[in-house]
Design a protein around this nucleic acid. Structure first.
Lengths: 203, 203
DNA sequence: CGTTCGATATATCGAAGTGATATTATATTT
DNA sequence: AAATATAATATCACTTCGATATATCGAACG
């Protein structure tokens, strides 16, 4: 799953490992605290698979809208001018490959494993890279999962053998699932009205 | 964290590995699908640490309120009579030790690492084993974490550099945190009114 | 009656993620 | 000029996951 997150960030622009961590925090909020112990192995893995490649900083592609710490970015650019060829120190900047782009979109669209809230939120945060059909597919799949889950937790919430605290947890879980469902339904109807206005424009 | 969950189940009555999985699903709903690849190593670990011990089925302590599959329990009792000493086949039944009880309560009360929703729900589901002070401590700690988190996701939700999908995820996350906060506040006021009624009874 | 099937039960594997820690370079503050 | 904070990569042991193997039991079926 971290692979998707990293590739998603690299779709926008090049990044190095440390930056991936900060971006993950600022842009894909769900994955608040991913540790370096995950990121560096993941980058090595993705490079091995040919999904990303390390580039020298001089040819780094920077986005126009540099999200977040502008000062830091400017600082690194300044030092870039003064350092020797390979860019600032040990900084390894990664770029996504064609292969990586393909893999990213197919992984994003295909919820092989039925995902938990965190995984799904990640997918939605990157949904701009999906076509409308894939988005609706993802949403409907999630909707089904949530309805099943709601039934489960409601059983728990009504199980009189459980002590009050455990039942309270179940009740709260049910409310959480309901909130998720409302969100999904909202997104689904938004997708549909988008498609309609599309059809309307086309005729 | 799985250690807490397992010990929590064993506080109620003895269990074997497979049963721990089903109980985790039925009673501590948050931990829906814990795999055997986690449970068996965890049991071995706990045994090594002296928190649990394996007992022969004949001396198994069964709870009066046998939650869930009664038929299965009866079946195992029947076969117990017909099999040789060590109880049904390879079934290894674990019992919590005195040491385990102590460790359990201290681990449960002490959120060393600031925990995510899943971890906290687990603690709350087992809150019956905590004294009121420890419960309130846990709740207040959680409350602080949630307020901090709410501020974070609100920043994300209002970040105009993020695309609409990413922002939608953040907005939904904020709603989730608000729901969690409302739950915590409800629990806190319940704890307080309990204490009051206690004081009232005492005078 | 045998046999097949689903649930019960333990175990182990590799892959992935966590949290801690080490190390070094650069930037900022004093 | 020194101290401190932050940027940056890397590695460690440990935990968890998901898949898979294997064996037994009870029930259903022809």
């Amino acid at each position: 799953m971290l692979d998707i997150a990293i590739l998603g960030l690299l779709m926008d622009r090049d990044h190095h490992g440390y930056e991936i961590r900060t971006q993950l925090r600022d842009r894909l909020g769900v994955w608040a605290n991913v540790s370096f112990g995950s990121i560096y192995p993941a980058l090595a893995r993705l490079e091995r698979q040919g999904c990303v490649e390390a580039v020298t900083s001089s040819e780094t592609r920077l986005s126009s809208l540099s999200t977040g710490s502008l000062s830091g970015e400017r600082a690194s650019l300044r030092s870039l001018r003064t350092t020797t060829g390979l860019g600032r120190r040990g900084r390894k900047v990664y770029r996504i490959t064609e292969r990586g782009r393909r893999d990213f979109v197919s992984m994003l669209a295909d919820p092989a494993t039925l995902d938990d809230g965190k995984n799904f939120s990640l997918r939605m945060a990157l949904a701009q890279y999906l076509n409308p059909n894939a988005r609706v597919g993802l949403l409907e799949r999630r909707r089904g999962d949530l309805i099943a889950r709601l039934a489960e937790v409601r059983v728990g919430a009504n199980n009189e053998l459980l002590d009050p605290y455990a039942r309270g947890v179940m009740e709260h879980a049910a409310q959480g699932v309901e909130l998720d469902l409302a969100w999904i339904d909202g997104l689904l109807s938004a997708e549909r009205s988008n498609q309609e206005s599309f059809a309307h424009d086309a005729k």
